[in-house]
Simulated assay, not measured.
Amino acid sequence: MKQGSCLCGGVTFELTGELRPSVACHCIQCRKTSGHYVSATQVGPDQLNITKASTLAWFQSTPEAQRGFCNTCGSSLFWKHNADKGAVSVMSGTIDGATGIDTAKHIFTAFKGDYYDIADIMPQSEN
């Protein structure tokens, strides 16, 4: 089991089972919500237990997706696509301690910021 939280501790969660490798998303929405790009693992609905949700808020960022964040400290925590049958992307940096996962790929690289380079050898997709 892995544990995680937002910066202020208003949202805490537990993750069970195997975590998907992290995917780095460089789309404009991820850049706007995080201040850089986002790297997220993904779990099934039965693998995520939100243990404290006193400051958890959800934002409908597109007609198809929602983003979970802390409405006190602003931490970006979760991303859910309506068609994913309950799967939730969890921002890898919100997991406490070692995650045991690697970055598998980069997506939406056509939208990456001009202030950084993608220097690893992981696969890249422009969309």
Rank of each mutant, 00 (worst) to 15 (best):
I121G: 13
G97N: 13
Q42N: 09
I95T: 03
G10P: 09
T12M: 07
P63H: 10
G113H: 12
R67D: 00
D46S: 07
A83C: 07
Q47K: 11
K85N: 15
C25P: 11
D102A: 15
T51Q: 06
M1D: 06
A40F: 07
G35L: 02
D117W: 08
Q124V: 14
A65Y: 00
T12V: 02
L7N: 02
C70I: 03
V43N: 05
I50H: 04
A24L: 05
Q60V: 06
V23G: 08
A98P: 07
K85M: 07
L48Y: 06
V23K: 04
G68W: 01
T109F: 03
I118R: 05
F59D: 08
E14A: 10
T94Q: 12
P21T: 06
T94G: 09
C25T: 01
M1K: 06
S54Q: 12
A119P: 01
H36E: 05
I118T: 06
D46M: 00
F111R: 12
H26F: 05
S75E: 02
G97M: 03
G93S: 06
A87L: 09
Q3G: 03
A119Q: 13
K32L: 13
A104K: 15
A53I: 00
M122Y: 11
C70T: 02
D96I: 12
E18M: 05
K52H: 10
G44S: 11
T12N: 00
N71M: 05
A110N: 02
G68R: 04
K32P: 03
P21G: 10
S39T: 15
C27M: 02
V43G: 01
Q29D: 12
A57I: 05
S34N: 14
L7G: 00
S76K: 11
G93Y: 10
R67I: 00
F108C: 14
D102E: 15
T94E: 12
G44T: 13
I121H: 15
F69P: 03
T109C: 14
V11W: 00
I121Y: 13
F108I: 07
T94V: 05
